[in-house]
Amino acid sequence: MSEFVRVGPGRIPRIVWILLFGINALPWLLFSYADILALDGHFVSRAGMLWGRDFSNQWFGGKLALDGLNVYDNAAYREAIRGFGATAFQNYSYPPHTLLLGAMLAFLPYPIALFVWAAGGSILLYRASKPFVPFSPWLVLLVPSLARIPYGQFGLVTSALFLFAMRGSGVAAGFLTMKPHLGILLAAAMAVKKRFRQIFIALAVTVLLLLVSEWIFGLGSAFLHEGLKTQALVLRTGFDAAYFNVMPSAYVALRHTGLEWLAQAAVAIAALLILWQFRAASLSDLAFPVATATFLVLPYSFGYDMALVSIGFAIILYAHWAELDWAERIVAMLAFSAPNLVATHCVPLVLLAGLWVQLRVWRRDLAGQSAG
């Protein structure tokens, strides 16, 4: 337990620290356990999907694309996955180079592939987080979004790639284009910091991945004409689909009001103005503010990809508790819990306040270093 009380600028009370993770992670772990007990003999959950839905799309996509199926044809894709017992609504809309990842894992039986995905992603995030966090890095696997590891979250891999990129890896930045929207502000940060070699490597890796995937699957045109159309329809659909309850953007919060795009623009501009104040920070110091701002700027994002938001605020609470006032502590705890608060539609305001707290903490650190 010594990691819980390591010396820093301030110490968060142990009970607050434990409850912070426990209250947020335990419900998902219990829910996952109940779902596992309900699986049938073919690894299909009570919701009619293979256990680990996020990963099941990767596995299905790679396997079916290798068999020559156009996985961006929604009707054909759904018909094909029914053969595996998956009756829930699913579609494949990731960029075509993600199929390379799915194809490699599709050679394994599904349960084994899911285990490899979850274990490999956990190890990657542990290693990527280690230089950033002042507490035991295994705790990052209990942040709100990643407590859903049994569901095959892509957030493990993308969060790890993001942190590796923030440490200077152009290769990681290139692989992050598998979920390109999560790297938009990362790319901007690299440009502002004049990391041109890293940008060149990222572009080269991306082009290589796209060329290899086109050579193997030939689905680039299908993605541009069908995959992107499917993604656009996610936001434009008129009915209140369940997935809107896991989308944290201001656009989603104010759907049907006529103010959704105005609100999204206002929140995005405010976030970018705050983020600009970090321009003198090192790339590694920018990591968590950029992660927070990403989910404010994007109209299309999901709570299960927000691991780095929670990790960033866990660091602030752990290392700066004593110097935070009570308002800052409350904001940081709410921002840490943001992936579990998405359905309340208050997350844009919580994250905007959280980004301001991140700025205040960074400025205090900078002033302390100057005084020292």
Rank of each mutant, 00 (worst) to 15 (best):
M190C: 10
H225S: 03
F162S: 07
L26H: 03
T294D: 03
P248Y: 09
A172Y: 12
P348A: 13
V290D: 03
E226F: 00
V71Q: 13
S2V: 13
V205K: 11
R78F: 06
F200L: 15
S249C: 06
I201C: 04
A327N: 15
G10Q: 05
L298S: 01
G68T: 05
A250Q: 07
L235S: 10
I36H: 02
H181W: 05
G218E: 06
Y126R: 11
S301A: 15
R167G: 09
L99S: 09
G52K: 01
A293W: 07
R360M: 10
T98P: 01
H256I: 09
Q231P: 00
L26W: 14
L352W: 13
A293V: 05
S122D: 02
L208I: 14
P137K: 08
A232K: 05
L272Y: 12
A371S: 13
L296C: 06
G303I: 11
A280K: 15
P289L: 05
Y251L: 03
L185G: 00
T257R: 08
L20N: 07
A281T: 04
P131H: 02
L142C: 04
E260P: 04
G155E: 07
F31N: 14
L99E: 09
V5S: 10
L224D: 08
L156I: 09
F244I: 06
I201V: 15
H181V: 10
A281S: 12
N24F: 14
A160S: 11
L108C: 06
F217T: 05
L224T: 04
S282W: 04
W362R: 14
L161W: 04
R167I: 04
R236A: 10
G368Q: 14
A232G: 05
L355T: 09
Y243N: 05
V116D: 00
E214M: 06
S301L: 05
Q90R: 05
G83S: 11
